[in-house]
Nucleic acid binder design. Structure first.
Lengths: 135, 135
DNA sequence: GTAATTGCAAAAATTTTGCCTCATA
DNA sequence: TATGAGGCAAAATTTTTGCAATTAC
């Protein structure tokens, strides 16, 4: 990231942030693109990607790597954890129960430790119901 | 996954497992492909992907979604955490300092909680040295 | 012998990028 | 008006898949 860069607030960028602010489902880039297109039909997917990249770098949004094949995004609100359904891939927010101890890790690894993502995984209520029907 | 499926141990599959057993660097599919090709020059990348998928399903290896753009893999040994370098993307193992409390999460979310991945991130010793040279 | 597995190649899915034009600051 | 940003399309990257031939059990 070029720290001497000055960023402009375009209508595209504004609407992308807006969509993320209103989303609580951690959408993928393509889903964000679909939603933004309702307001800006001529926006391109490339623009969405470029903006998501910039918005993450300036700390306005966060990237979540959930299933490994594609990124998800969320607006940067207070710190929290995620729980992901191993069946349907949906992600929900969780409040933080226990923050991991960053100090020990630094000594142990030699890393300059910045943080820690905790991702819980399991089967969501909706998928639990589905598997009951099958069984 | 088809539970009635019976799996065969082909030489391709055996060597892929072997490569992962000997790797401590959480390689990507392509890197595994490169390594396996030294022993089986005619193996295809598709075969590697299909095997990684199966080996993960039977619990012999684990997937790690680190940077979100591509998967990494490791042999299933004892439980541990990971620390990822935000500069170079390398991943190292960490012993588990504090296991997160799974019980609370289940009550809180309604999920049938299976587990939790903790991924620490920061700057690895090698990248710390690099940035000192630049500054 | 049978069905799982392979190699090959094509396709799919996701993300990045070049280039020229437009618009924000 | 200078340069960051957008639109479009092509390319790059990673992963998946169809199919005929092969191989493990």
């Amino acid at each position: 990231m070029d720290l001497n860069q000055t960023y402009r607030m375009t209508k595209q960028r504004k609407i992308i942030v807006d969509v993320l602010k209103k989303s609580n489902d951690h959408p993928t880039a393509d889903l964000i693109y679909q939603k933004v297109r309702r307001k800006l039909p001529r926006i391109s997917l490339g623009t969405v990607y470029r903006n998501l990249e910039i918005l993450e770098q300036i700390g306005m949004i966060r990237k979540i790597n959930s299933d490994g094949t594609r990124m998800r995004f969320e607006f940067s609100s207070e710190e929290h954890n995620h729980i992901r359904c191993t069946e349907c891939g949906s992600i929900e927010d969780l409040k933080i129960d226990c923050a991991p101890p960053l100090g020990n890790i630094s000594e142990e690894s030699g890393y300059e430790v910045i943080g820690c993502d905790q991702e819980y995984y399991g089967i969501c209520p909706s998928c639990q119901k589905k598997s009951q029907k099958i069984a």
